[in-house]
Computed example of a mutant assay.
Amino acid sequence: MKLLLVEDDAAMAQALQLALERRGFEVAHVADGGEALHRLRHDPPDAALLDLTLPGMDGLLVLHKVQSEGITVPILVLTARGSVGDRVVGLNAGAEDYLAKPFDLDELEARIRVLLRRHAKKDTVLACGPLVMEMESGAFYLRGTPLEVTPREQAFLKALIARPGHAVAKEKLFRVVFPMESDIQFEAIEVVAYRLRKKLAGAEVSLITLRGLGYLLRDDTKPVA
């Protein structure tokens, strides 16, 4: 299990890395937020331990960028900022757990393992509100009931549910839905979208058209910011 430890205190980082490696984890260490974000983007670990007070890029900014870019690495914040307000801010910024310094190593290990188990379960499905896709089979379920879709509709939905709330370009969707089909008109993608929109009607998940950008799936159970 690969962990990324983001901590600018060299002595603490060395001690924590050694302790975690003795407990069976593979630990990589970086000391600033910019390098942490680079690792999370290009060499994602199974989980990250993130300090909030960092040189270069504050830990909260790292969390905001991770959330906005759809990076799925679970992050546990380790910080001296231990007030309830700080905890709420960290969790709202995208952290999945929060542990104030000083902490007990047994508790830290337990929280890491819970985080990893929870994330492993998440990785078996993709979801947007009541719409769920099993990653292994590619089957879609709406409110727990199998959703009947054609192969083209399945390809369309699969591209969107990979990043709910983020637009996927019409051109990219066309290539995914109609691969190697040069005789198909570009407007055919709109027909697929229309049919899917009808199948999702009233189900608290919407297929949204963004003019000039493409399409996205929106979870209507979440309040609009």
Rank of each mutant, 00 (worst) to 15 (best):
A48D: 10
A48I: 10
L49Q: 09
L49N: 05
L49W: 06
L50W: 11
D51F: 08
D51E: 14
D51N: 14
D51A: 12
L52M: 13
L52P: 13
T53C: 06
T53W: 01
L54D: 04
L54S: 05
L54F: 09
P55Q: 10
P55W: 09
G56M: 08
G56R: 07
M57W: 02
M57C: 03
M57N: 02
M57T: 02
D58N: 14
D58T: 02
D58L: 03
D58E: 14
G59F: 01
G59A: 02
G59K: 10
G59E: 08
L60F: 15
L60D: 05
L60H: 15
L60V: 15
L61R: 13
L61D: 15
L61V: 14
L61I: 05
V62S: 02
L63S: 05
L63G: 03
L63I: 11
L63M: 03
H64N: 12
H64I: 00
H64F: 05
K65M: 12
K65W: 04
K65I: 14
K65G: 00
V66R: 10
V66G: 02
Q67D: 11
Q67V: 08
Q67W: 03
Q67C: 08
Q67R: 15
Q67I: 00
Q67F: 06
Q67S: 14
S68Y: 01
S68C: 01
S68K: 14
S68M: 07
S68A: 15
S68G: 12
E69N: 09
E69F: 06
E69C: 10
G70P: 14
G70R: 13
G70E: 13
I71G: 04
I71A: 08
I71K: 13
T72D: 15
V73N: 03
V73W: 10
V73Y: 08
V73K: 07
P74Q: 06
P74W: 05
I75E: 11
L76M: 15
L76T: 13
L76P: 00
L76F: 11
L76N: 06
L76A: 01
V77N: 00
V77I: 11
V77W: 01
